Simulated scan of single mutants.
Amino acid sequence: MSHAPIEPNWPARIAIALAALLALITALALAVTIGEMKISLSTAFQALGNGVLDLGYPVSAIQQGVIFDYRLSRALLAALCGGTLALSGAILQALLRNPLAEPYILGISAGASTGAVAVMILGFGGAVLTISGGAFIGAVVALLVVALLATGAGGSSDRVILAGVAGSQLFNAATATIVTTLANAEQARGVMFWLLGNFGGVRWPDVWVATPVALICFAVCMLHAKVLDAFAFGADAAASLGVAVTRVRIVLFATTAVMTATMVSIVGTVGFVGLVIPHAARFLVGPAHARLLPACLVIGAIFMILADILSRILVPQQILPIGVVTALFGAPAFALILYRARRPT
């Protein structure tokens, strides 16, 4: 007896999408109202109206600057950063078939940091190469180093993770060497704080740089959603289904490098987001990448906005580096994933 195919539960999907959008808006509203200066939600909306539409609401210049130029731009960049890092983690975990894969652990973030610091302190590239360009070159070099180490070690996904850890240490050492030997005291202090992740210097030009990168890279990832599902059975199985494995790997690895390098060049190194968020998203929406990738984008955005809020309020009169806050949540989750992924002996 044949059965008609089950139609997608569109009302439930629409309800979930609306709930996710509401959660994101709520997180943004909290980000612009919470801080050392107490600001009401109505004042925040008035400042937003003044900044976007020039409506002329009676908002003081200080409040207008704090809400629109500082907190809102910072919150939007945090959302873009969290979403793209989570997206990168989901892509790497699918391609490598390893639950521990993410840009931070694979050394991509460390390579991007080295490239950015080389441009900032050594002046590589002169006026031609920007910090973002240096970060991208560093991320690509890190990918190549990890691939070379992993190939020499056998190429399994576990070996790739170990190669990533080794590559990460290598590039962290290179960054530390540049900072300690060639930077002056002011440069060293700024770079070391930046390396821990910092949204303090974010302004609207940074948002305009990060937004098209996030949107274009997300579109590229979504175009490969079905292909990523095929990788769940291994590269050989994907190839047997007609997937151009080498081309897909190059495109998606390059996409993750672009996303990681862009965010690292703006805010510094932020760890564990690409590791934890994809697992949380899989728990909520399942493994199918057509649903998983948008979920990673939204959940990563909300997580990073909330983490940024915590970085501003956990210690009075002081702002913690965002990397410290994400590590406080990510390290225990990393330990849990390691425990659950262990193999019986």
Rank of each mutant, 00 (worst) to 15 (best):
D206G: 09
L170Q: 09
G201Y: 03
G242S: 06
T211V: 11
I216V: 15
S157K: 09
G167A: 04
A257D: 03
L196P: 02
L143H: 04
A185G: 07
G155E: 04
L228V: 02
I216N: 07
G242Y: 08
G152Q: 11
F193H: 12
G242V: 05
R189E: 14
L252F: 08
V227W: 13
L196G: 01
A166D: 01
T211I: 08
F171P: 00
V202A: 06
F199H: 03
V141Y: 04
L144C: 08
S156L: 05
V145I: 14
N198I: 01
N172E: 08
A225P: 05
N184W: 11
A188S: 14
G164H: 01
L143R: 04
F218T: 15
T180W: 03
L228C: 02
A238S: 03
A219I: 13
M222P: 10
I161F: 04
V209Q: 14
L196W: 06
W208T: 14
N184C: 09
I178N: 06
M192K: 12
N172M: 13
W204L: 10
A173Y: 11
V165S: 04
T246W: 11
V146W: 01
T175D: 03
F199M: 13
F253Q: 04
V146Q: 09
G234K: 11
R189W: 00
V202G: 02
K226E: 12
L241S: 06
V165G: 01
I250A: 13
P212F: 10
A153L: 12
A239S: 15
I178S: 08
F218R: 07
A210F: 03
R159D: 03
I178T: 08
V202Q: 06
F171H: 05
S157F: 10
G201C: 12
A166S: 11
P205Y: 13
L215M: 11
M259H: 02
I161Y: 03
S157A: 15
G167L: 02
W194E: 03
G200H: 05
V243G: 01
I178W: 08
M192Q: 14
L241P: 01
M192I: 12
L149G: 11
V207S: 09
F233S: 14
V202H: 05
A188N: 09
T151S: 15
G154P: 03
C221S: 15
L144K: 07
A230I: 00
L149M: 12
V191P: 06
V165H: 08
A163K: 03
M192L: 14
L143P: 00
F193M: 05
A244Y: 07
V245R: 08
F218N: 01
G164P: 02
T181W: 13
G154V: 08
A150H: 06
L215D: 02
F253S: 07
L170I: 11
N184K: 02
R159M: 13
G154M: 08
V243C: 07
L162G: 10
F233M: 15
C221A: 15
G242W: 05
A239T: 04
T175E: 03
T181V: 12
G201V: 07
L241Q: 13
T211M: 14
V140M: 13
H224K: 09
D158M: 14
G190S: 10
V258M: 10
V213E: 04
A176I: 11
D236P: 02
R247K: 15
G152V: 10
W208N: 06
A235T: 10
N198R: 09
V165Y: 11
G190L: 07
G155T: 06
G154D: 03
H224D: 04
V258K: 08
F233L: 15
G152T: 10
R247N: 08
